[in-house]
Amino acid sequence: MPPIPGSGLAKGLAVTLRTMTKRTVTAQYPDVQPELPPRTRGVIGLFEENCTVCMLCARECPDWCIYIDSHKETTPPAAPGGRERSRNVLDRFAIDFALCMYCGICIEVCPFDALFWSPEFEYAETDIHELTHERDKLREWMWTVPEPPALDPGAEEPKEIAAARKTADKLQAQEEREAQEAREARDAQGPAEDRSDRAAGQEGQE
């Protein structure tokens, strides 16, 4: 059956009328702050305590917008007669956000978790030179980095927690083994003490 003439026109009118009754999507930004998703790419923060001046970020940056200066310091040998150790000390770390294209490669490649995305985005300047954020400013951005979002239920444990748990388990197993040995040694003396001892052990485990 062919469509009724004019039904397309009516459909168009219906669409606009329906849109009018729906909520608008306008973000009233300066009055109402936007609700940004957790992984928003606003600005890059530097956790400089973690930085080892490996320069991976600067080398991978497609825009060459990361500037790193450093010098080497030597630390005296740990043991007398040993070799002197050398260590990189960060002098300057700057990101030119006028050049940055927010690809996030620097954050991906940082092997020491020194760079993070922050959702802050209100750092427009009237002078383009001020868009080059120096080390202290980048460090300040770190305070705005949100907690990492919670993992999905049933997801694999984070590596660091898994490692910590492994160590803790190992430690506990060792303690238990020692306790077991102690108990076996005590068994010869009397069984009453043994029971209360085991109860205390269980509480500690929980």
């Binding site: 009018m20 729906k22 608008t24 009233q28």
Partner: peptide, 13 residues
């Protein structure tokens, strides 16, 4: 205002 709301906007505010 009508045009704005028909396009999912708010119009002048």
């Amino acid at each position: 205002k009508v045009m704005a709301h028909m396009q999912g906007r708010l119009g002048p505010m």
